[in-house]
């Protein structure tokens, strides 16, 4: 009984890292973790969109949060892509480490927590950010 309560009171996150920073996203949004084999750059997209990765006939845009939060990168090797689902749309975050899962008590305020929905809205490519249009 007491264990059940404890479980309910815990929240699980997925941790991924860029440079020396770590970020957390809710575990339930995670779809999969991919090895980055080939990314296709998308001309005209903002610099934090590294490109798109074909996954089973669909594409996942790959986002580099280093460009968003101005994080310095030490090494580019061992890149993983953490694919999360936001209201049916999949996006991927580059991670320098292999993402892993952690659980905390629900009342602990997690630092570097990312609200996927909010971030999605913030980073969503709008026509203004679209460089092709800007140039004209």
């Amino acid at each position: 009984m007491s264990e059940e309560i404890k479980q309910e009171a815990e929240r699980s996150y997925c941790v991924f890292g860029i440079g020396d920073r770590e970020f957390l996203v809710p575990k339930e949004t995670v779809i999969q973790i991919l090895d980055i084999t080939k990314i296709f750059p998308i001309p005209g997209s903002p610099d934090y969109v590294v490109g798109a990765l074909p996954v089973r006939g669909k594409i996942v845009p790959a986002i580099d949060l280093a460009k968003v939060y101005n994080i310095e990168r030490i090494n580019y090797s061992n890149n993983k892509l953490l694919v999360i689902d936001i209201d049916g749309e999949q996006v991927g975050f580059l991670s320098d480490i292999t993402p892993f899962f952690v659980s905390f008590d629900a009342d602990i305020v997690v630092e570097d927590y990312i609200d996927p929905k909010k971030l999605f809205e913030e980073l969503k490519v709008s026509s203004q950010k679209n460089t092709l249009n800007k140039k004209e």
Binding site: G44, A52, P54, I59, L123, N130
Partner: peptide, 22 residues
């Protein structure tokens, strides 16, 4: 392209070639 990239209006979309190229 999906909602995230929908702002890239210069593209109608994408398809993946037989060789897996986007």
């Amino acid at each position: 392209l999906g909602k995230f990239l929908a702002g890239l209006t210069q593209y109608l979309g994408y398809f993946i070639s037989g060789k897996g190229t986007l």
